[in-house]
């Protein structure tokens, strides 16, 4: 565990909690892509199946449980409790265009052809593109609320910090996971446009490029 990894995890947690609190406090999920949140719930579910098979540390287990619980709570708020405020008309990204190719790729390119490993690989690939429905939705409506931009900032920051963590681990621990690194680079690149706007527009609600 290094400082980049820890701050990366905390950024991830911050993003998840920011979104959950925003929906809870405003009693509304307007501007939030339910499809992205469903994909993230699927990401956590398929990645953390190793909760049943291996124990790494108390930290590892608790964070996994928190991530899963929060992501399901978010999906529940969007599709059940505050369904009336969900902006489904603008959430029109075709998720099958992500899930099907990602599923195929995880069968073809993985560390080991076993069910758990393929599901883990699937989750890594899917996470790298799971934000696309949200970015697509923002590009359609042309604007995102300030709090939504904070959410996106922390989501992007999390993966960027993981990249630094992997460089650190490569040099100091000899650790290198090509699948995670390539997917992490793709994921971070998706946020670059957004990072630029977030910083130049004074971290307030801003229009994003189509």
């Amino acid at each position: 565990m290094n400082i980049f990894r820890l701050t990366g995890d905390l950024s991830h947690l911050a993003a998840i909690v920011i979104l959950l609190l925003k929906i809870w406090k405003t009693r509304s999920c307007a501007g939030i892509s339910g499809k992205s949140q469903l994909l993230f719930a699927l990401v956590f579910t398929t990645r953390y199946l190793d909760l049943f098979t291996s124990f790494i540390s108390l930290y590892n287990t608790s964070m996994k449980l928190i991530y899963i619980a929060c992501s399901y709570a978010t999906v529940y708020l969007i599709y059940m409790k505050f369904k009336a405020t969900y902006d489904g008309n603008h959430d029109t990204f075709r998720v099958e265009f992500l899930v099907v190719p990602v599923g195929g790729l995880s069968f073809l390119v993985n560390h080991d052809f076993s069910p758990l490993e393929i599901l883990w690989t699937f989750s890594i690939y899917l996470e790298s593109v799971a934000i696309l429905p949200q970015l697509f939705m923002i590009s359609k409506t042309g604007e995102a609320e300030t709090i939504t931009t904070h959410y996106l900032f922390f989501q992007g920051l999390y993966r960027a910090l993981y990249l630094v963590n992997w460089i650190w681990r490569f040099y100091f621990e000899g650790f290198f996971d090509l699948i995670a690194v390539v997917a992490g680079v793709v994921q971070t690149i998706l946020y670059c446009d957004f990072f630029y706007l977030y910083i130049t527009k004074g971290m307030s609600g801003c229009a994003l490029p189509a």
Binding site: R5, D9, H12, D50, T53, S54, I56, S57, N60, M63, K64, Y67, H111, D112, S114, L116, E117, W120, Y162, F175, F176, D177, A180
Partner: peptide, 10 residues
């Protein structure tokens, strides 16, 4: 090489 049963990252 990554040992598939020892994933400590989230």
């Amino acid at each position: 090489e990554v040992r598939v049963d020892e994933k400590d990252e989230l």
